[in-house]
Nucleic acid binder design. Sequence first.
DNA 1: GACAAATGAAACAAGGGTGACTCACTTCTG
DNA 2: CAGAAGTGAGTCACCCTTGTTTCATTTGTC
Lengths: 203, 203
Amino acid sequence: MGDDSPSRRVRADAERSTARILEAAEAVLAVDSTASLERIADAAGLARATVHRRFATRAALLEALAEQLSGRYLLGLAEARVKTAPPLVALHRVTEFVLGLRSDHRFALQLTEARTPEVLDGLDTLFARLRDTGAVTAAEPAWSRRVYLALLCEVYELPADSAALGPGAAADETAAKADLLVRTTLGALGGSHDTAALSPSGR
Amino acid sequence: MGDDSPSRRVRADAERSTARILEAAEAVLAVDSTASLERIADAAGLARATVHRRFATRAALLEALAEQLSGRYLLGLAEARVKTAPPLVALHRVTEFVLGLRSDHRFALQLTEARTPEVLDGLDTLFARLRDTGAVTAAEPAWSRRVYLALLCEVYELPADSAALGPGAAADETAAKADLLVRTTLGALGGSHDTAALSPSGR
DNA sequence: GACAAATGAAACAAGGGTGACTCACTTCTG
DNA sequence: CAGAAGTGAGTCACCCTTGTTTCATTTGTC
């Protein structure tokens, strides 16, 4: 799916343009999901015609964007060893990974096509394992996943100096947010509050 | 603000039209917030011209819609005695009231103008009182409010037969959802899990 | 029943977004 | 350096939405 036959070469700056378009699209659409292609092109520092050359239609651009976002999430799930690592550890790792992304998650999660079945399945198996461990009371993984994602958006948009993050949050914002999100999610889902065993000494 | 001078009479069917427009707008815009006025008019069973007669511009319609929604929330807060009743009871009452509304809350909460300062303040004082009671650990009412509203959307969209609602949910769906939401919120915010004292025998 | 209010249908102009195309120009790559 | 790939700027047609207006018709209300 990557390189073609040697006959047709893809120039380096063309790929750079594509990346810049996707980047700009994510930033602009996060603010206003109805923004015109021209505004996206401006944000990317390119002409609108160039956007059309990369992505034939607006829908194609959105699709590519969704695919990219889904890919990032999948990578995070894989790196966290969602299926094998101790579920609490995996949850923490996924959370830190996702919060570390520059994506605007409220936008990303609204993008229907970004919620790939694979991503959802990954989270669901994680929450199923958390339930089997007893870390979570909620029976339905799908429900747990929804709660987690909803809280993810709220935590993500939390200002860095919020008191909700606890003391010393400025030191490592992402870690503090991950702690808060894990704690809040487990509490919401009726877990036994043993999260202290996770955050303290280790890192 | 209701009746005018006797000189100008507002016919009954006109008010009915206005109500139908707002109703249809809420339903249609909840699905697609960029839906055209024509689709709203169709859903209301009226001509687009009539919509324009009631609301000069699209913005005016949205504003009226937001005002209506905000009014409903304010009514719920008032009826729950947010400022005087025992906070846990008030929280439960607000929740039941809001879940009983036919509004699509995910849409309503996205509608910026519907989040009136009054509504936000009402919730914030409620969560401040919950914190003072010890029912909630989270220090910042604003954070508690955000968590509550985020979970509200998820609970609201939960299918009636979801296992997350627990046994016997079909009996009174709204009550079951309210229980779930209160329990989940208090858990998320680190409350002492004494919610059993609320739901069982009373109602 | 009479009068005024309200509506439906239709046409209209204005504005904006999308997508396709051309052509001159710049920038990579071999 | 030479040719090909990529880009910018401009134009064009098309469609959809918004907002306005007109006129015949229906519907409340007194």
